[in-house]
Design a protein around this nucleic acid. Sequence first.
DNA 1: CCAGCTTATGTAAGCGCTTACAGAAAGGCA
DNA 2: TGCCTTTCTGTAAGCGCTTACATAAGCTGG
Lengths: 332, 332
Amino acid sequence: MDVTIYEVARRAGVSIATVSRTLRGTGPVAPKTREKVLKAVEELRFTPSRLGVSLAEGRHAANGIVFPNLSGPYYTEVLLGYEEVASELGRSVVILSTKGRTRVHDLVKDLAGRVDGLMVFGHTAPDDLVAELVRMGMPLVFVSREPLAGADTLRSENTESARALARHLLEHGYRRFAFLGAPIATGDDVDERWQGVRSVLGGAIEAVPTEHYTVECGYQAARTLLRAPARPQAIVCSDDEVALGALLAAEELGLAVPDELAVTGWDDIMAARHARPALTTIRQPMRELGARAARALDELITGARDTPRHLVLTTELVLRASCGHHPQEEPR
Amino acid sequence: MDVTIYEVARRAGVSIATVSRTLRGTGPVAPKTREKVLKAVEELRFTPSRLGVSLAEGRHAANGIVFPNLSGPYYTEVLLGYEEVASELGRSVVILSTKGRTRVHDLVKDLAGRVDGLMVFGHTAPDDLVAELVRMGMPLVFVSREPLAGADTLRSENTESARALARHLLEHGYRRFAFLGAPIATGDDVDERWQGVRSVLGGAIEAVPTEHYTVECGYQAARTLLRAPARPQAIVCSDDEVALGALLAAEELGLAVPDELAVTGWDDIMAARHARPALTTIRQPMRELGARAARALDELITGARDTPRHLVLTTELVLRASCGHHPQEEPR
DNA sequence: CCAGCTTATGTAAGCGCTTACAGAAAGGCA
DNA sequence: TGCCTTTCTGTAAGCGCTTACATAAGCTGG
């Protein structure tokens, strides 16, 4: 950190331009000169300052990622896929969580000043700042959000898989349903799941809000729902965490799942697989979502592509014990 | 991004020093002058370049975090606690995953050049580079690692809680045990857990390695173990993921948990709580670990403290159904 | 040996911002 | 009004690095 390119140049008896060229391979350097420079670099343990390089290059070699909170396994998996690809592409990853924070506008803006592009989950960055970043030409990729002009969007399919799930429940013979975890915003992921399910089940399903999409809120809402006189036969949950909460409520109320009540989730997080009964759910390719987002962002940053693109990744119905008995049911 | 401090100065009819002073509050500025500057800033939508500021200040206002992989919920929770505090302290968080990567030495070194201090999980950064970073005076906090001269270390307590767990299993009446997920390195977390358990159970427990500390490896090792003639009555697992794998193996082999086999984990991740039977485990204060690490690193960076410190956080035995029946057992 | 071309190297100008220090301006008091 | 003190402002020098362009050095062929 203390050694600068000037000291290397002095020790090697060359100019700083020659040191730079040697280290970066950006121009011709005589073999003897090269040796002298590398020797000096090694003796002085010189590492170029990231700040100096970035300022001179006019680029950060870093990507930002804005997410609501990491406590949901969903975000973790996406982040992991993203970080892996970003690293392969030689980019650091700077993270920012916005949930519960004040001055989000300032936080995101600061982040934008440190990176070459941003990936943003849904609506976690303020809309006015998003509009400004788009105007400024900042490369942006949004995950789990409706298409936005001037930026890439990437999401998993919701509607068709929701339909498939609903049809499957009908095949089990259920006729009374509830959707636990009502949509907060029109057009977001949960809304699409709701719309898909409702397009198949019609008036046979009602939406029940949860305060948040968490285990605890799912538990509370399910407990209330399951104590009412007219109990649904099956609960379709917005996501796996809410579904885990519903399982807890059923357990507490002595309702056998799936014999007395069916429960489904969405995401296929680890806890969904290890719950008993294991949750029927829709598997989201979360890591691939992150990886694709990182690649898309790289294209925008390098200029390999300058027209925004909107992608939808395939999801998959995963049948397990929580929705009913299946002849060839997988054990886990 | 395109607007520089020079344009603001020109528009406001003042020097760049005055613009800087106005925005940073680092010196006296006449009220009228201040208004002119702020007006120009707003009209031009000027945001100071993070790079310029950092280079001139000689600091990044960012912390780095090096971890093996995010796929374990443990790391996620620590990271969340860390990011929350770092953000409060005005620091961005730059992440780097090292598992499965080549040139880790270079990756960590690049990261070190972008931040004011680093938090490192265990041994995920190469030892020679760690020694160099210590020599250079870089602020370092290690999590889950034995004390290291020149840097802070922070870990959760292992040995006493492992003893408490072992004693509890003895109280259930078990007399034959296995430790699933043998230690890889002397002195690391899993080794301390093993040592603690063995100090109570002595020759009644044997260590069984798993290739990795994952559900899949735990499943494979447990399946092999449980098919052998001399089956243990209780399996103490290195961590919750390995324990979840052991539960899967027991389920597949038709062994009732806890009646025919007891299983315990470590960490208290979400999936451990939602498994059935719910896992008896040791709760690690993972978020607090991350939060404390971020605060410790801040003290080192700001110079509020310059002597390394070694902290151990308390862990807690959490009794659930997987180790046996308890008179007042919590439902979840 | 000379001319022309290619390879190698150094100088200077930035990239965007902070701030020490010197000087100017303003205010207060005798 | 003059002097002294305080407040305000601008200039210049960096922070560490990259690189365009000009020049020097080296090599090859006639």
